[in-house]
């Protein structure tokens, strides 16, 4: 299936009229349907993956749970609880239906319903992630914008080089090292902030910072590149020709285009943030999903593991969906692209 290669000195391409045939509502409907189909597909994939997880465990999962020294009778009890002796399809059906009803089973280590455990721990994880997101946006975006404008004007070469070097260095810092260093500096040496966190607002600052520092550096880099590129576009010349103030130019012409082009990449960073939160919780000893899942893996507490992975996966997907919607609102051209993301 050959693709048509045309040069960039394009003659007017008539695809525009197709757009006029569809009202905005129809476009949105089609776009949302596509995205929702994606969400459904991922949820399905998550369910299958978490289900298969237990199936693929080498040896006897029940044995892993109760330990090497336990008796066969104890193992069998657990096997019955996990329905491991039922045919695979029955197990799948049991699993899917209970999950969809909101029952994620009971933790073997704490005997607590998994849903309850998640409900308790999710807010903490979410707080760190959201805190990280705020830092990411507050630091990464304006910094990148400012340096992008500076770079385009051709002045302050040293500042831009410092920026490039700085973002490369900070962007390479893993969140656990950042966390460790932050504890060292702010928690122990300077004693400004608590080293173990989660409880209070102050306890969230360091973890959020640890999670967000490297992504913020990367985001600043991306925003810088995009801003610089956009400032070179012809419509900026058109806008300059209108002799509007620089501030107005940046707000009405540069900003909307930078946001749309960085939003997709920003979305990926956001999801990576979620992953980073899992690790950082272990650095700061925060009682969130991150610490819980590590313990659960050691204890082979499969119901907990399945539940947490499901929830984390769904969170990531939801974030993706929200970003797609925001993108659709900001940039209607996105609505035209067919297919799932």
């Amino acid at each position: 299936m050959a693709g048509v290669q045309t040069l960039t000195t394009q003659r007017s391409s008539p695809g525009w009229s197709r757009l006029l045939r569809h009202s905005a509502f129809q476009q949105w409907a089609r776009y949302l349907a596509g995205r929702l189909a994606g969400v459904v597909a991922i949820t399905l994939a998550l369910l299958i993956m978490t289900f298969l997880m237990v199936q693929f465990v080498p040896g006897d999962p029940a044995r892993n749970i109760v330990g090497i020294t336990a008796t066969q009778a104890q193992v069998d009890v657990v096997r019955a609880q996990l329905h491991l002796d039922d045919p695979v399809l029955t197990q799948a059906w049991t699993y899917f239906s209970s999950v969809l009803q909101g029952n994620l089973g009971k933790s073997f280590t704490t005997q607590q319903p998994v849903v309850e455990m998640i409900a308790q721990r999710l807010p903490l994880t979410a707080s760190v992630a959201v805190g990280g997101l705020i830092i990411l946006l507050v630091i990464g975006f304006p910094l990148g914008l400012a340096i992008g404008v500076l770079q385009r004007s051709g002045r302050a070469a040293r500042t831009t080089t410092a920026f490039t070097v700085g973002t490369s260095l900070f962007g390479a810092l893993p969140e656990y090292i950042t966390g460790t260093l932050l504890i060292l500096v702010f928690g122990l040496t300077l004693r400004w902030l608590p080293a173990q966190g989660g409880e209070s607002f102050q306890g969230l600052i360091l973890p959020a910072l640890a999670v967000a520092l490297a992504p913020a550096a990367v985001m600043a880099r991306i925003v810088r590149n995009e801003t610089s590129a956009i400032l070179g576009e012809e419509y900026i010349s058109t806008a300059r020709g209108k002799r509007i103030s620089t501030v107005r130019l940046l707000i009405t012409h540069v900003f909307p285009n930078v946001v749309t082009s960085t939003l997709t990449l920003g979305g990926l960073l956001l999801i990576a943030l979620l992953g980073g939160t899992v690790i950082v919780e272990n650095v700061f000893n925060i009682a969130g999903l991150g610490t819980q899942i590590v313990q659960a893996i050691f204890a082979s507490d499969y119901p907990s593991i399945q539940g947490i992975i499901l929830v984390l996966g769904l969170l990531a997907t939801l974030v993706s969906l929200v970003i797609d919607i925001v993108l659709g609102i900001l940039d209607p051209r996105v609505l035209q692209k067919n297919g799932l993301k």
Binding site: G15, S17, R18
Partner: peptide
């Protein structure tokens, strides 16, 4: 004055 959309 424009050529029409080939799809329509």
């Amino acid at each position: 004055v424009e050529p029409p959309d080939p799809a329509n």
